[in-house]
C-alpha cells in the first residue's frame, strides 16, 4: 500500500444535506497536506470519517488500505477541534493515558515539551487557560510516532506567537515517513509548511496540487489562488 489515506467516491449525508459529495483523494506518505476550505465545506466531516467518528453514507475511506477501525486508530493521531481531554486529569495523568493506549507514544518527547511550556505535572487541565489546554492537546497528539496526523483547525483563533509555536511543534515532531493533514481556513498562516494543498468547497474537491507547482505555474501564493477560487 503506497497511500496512507485514500477516499473513493466518499459521500456523507446528514439528513438531506450532503456534506461530502463522492470525493476521490489519495495522500502519499511523507507529506504535509493542507485541507483548505471555508467553514462548512466538509473539512471536519472528512477528518471525522478518517478516524471512525462518522461512517460514510456511500463510497469508502481507507487508512493504509483499511477502513477505519481499532487497528487504523493505532496509527492515526487525531487532534479534534475542541478540548477532548477530561478536565479533571493532571498533565501527568494525561500523559499516562496516552502512554497506556498508544504504543507509539514518545513519553520523553512529551515530557520535554511539557516542561518547556512550563506546565506543572500535577496541574489539572481544569485550571489551565484555553490556550494552554490546546497546546497540551497538541503536544500529546504530536508526541505520537503516528503514520497519519489529522489536525482539525489547529491554528483557528490563535495569536501569531501561538501559531508559530504550533507550526514549530508540528514540524519538529512529525516523522518524515508520516503524513500530516492540517485543516484550516487560514491559508496564509500555514502555506509555507505545506507540500500539497487540497481545496474543498461545498463537499467537493476543487483542486489538489503541490504548493510549489501552484507558485511556479500560477505565479501566485496558495492564499491568493484560494481567494480567486472562492471569490464569488
Amino acid at each position: 500500500m503506497s497511500n496512507i489515506l485514500e477516499c473513493k467516491a466518499l459521500t456523507k449525508r446528514y439528513g438531506g444535506k450532503e456534506a461530502l459529495s463522492a470525493i476521490d483523494l489519495s495522500l502519499e506518505p511523507g507529506r504535509i497536506v493542507g485541507l483548505l476550505g471555508p467553514n462548512g465545506s466538509g473539512k471536519t466531516t472528512l477528518i471525522k470519517l478518517a478516524c471512525g467518528l462518522l461512517t460514510p453514507t456511500a463510497g469508502g475511506i481507507y487508512i493504509n488500505g483499511e477502513a477505519p477501525s481499532k487497528a487504523t486508530n493505532a496509527i492515526v493521531s487525531y487532534l479534534p477541534e475542541r478540548i477532548a481531554l477530561p478536565l479533571w486529569m493532571t498533565t501527568q495523568q494525561a500523559m499516562d493515558f496516552y502512554g497506556d493506549f498508544y504504543a507509539d507514544f514518545r513519553r520523553d518527547a512529551a515530557e520535554d515539551m511539557v516542561s518547556r511550556l512550563g506546565l506543572e505535572l500535577r496541574q489539572t487541565i481544569k485550571t489551565m487557560s484555553k490556550g494552554t489546554r490546546e497546546k497540551l492537546q497538541l503536544i500529546l497528539t504530536m508526541s505520537r510516532a503516528a503514520r497519519l496526523y489529522l489536525l482539525d483547525e489547529p491554528i483557528g483563533g490563535v495569536d501569531p506567537a501561538t501559531r508559530d509555536y504550533i507550526l514549530k511543534t508540528i514540524l519538529t515532531n512529525y516523522s518524515e515517513e508520516s503524513t500530516v493533514l492540517i485543516s484550516t481556513h487560514l491559508i496564509s498562516d500555514v502555506e509555507h509548511v505545506l507540500d500539497e494543498a487540497v481545496f474543498l468547497r461545498e463537499g467537493s474537491i476543487m483542486l489538489h496540487e503541490s504548493v510549489d507547482t501552484i507558485r511556479e505555474e500560477k505565479g501566485k501564493s496558495v492564499d491568493e489562488l484560494f481567494r480567486e477560487v472562492f471569490a464569488c
Binding site: C51, G52, L53, S69, K70, A71, N73, A74, V76, Y78, P80, R82, I83, A84, L85, P86, F101, Y102
Partner: peptide, 18 residues
C-alpha cells in the same frame, strides 16, 4: 454520557479500541 457522548468522546472513540 460525558465520556462517550460529550467532548471526551473525541478522545475515547478514536482510541485503538472498539
Amino acid at each position: 454520557k460525558r465520556n462517550l457522548l460529550g467532548d471526551e468522546g473525541y478522545l475515547m472513540r478514536t482510541l485503538p479500541v472498539n
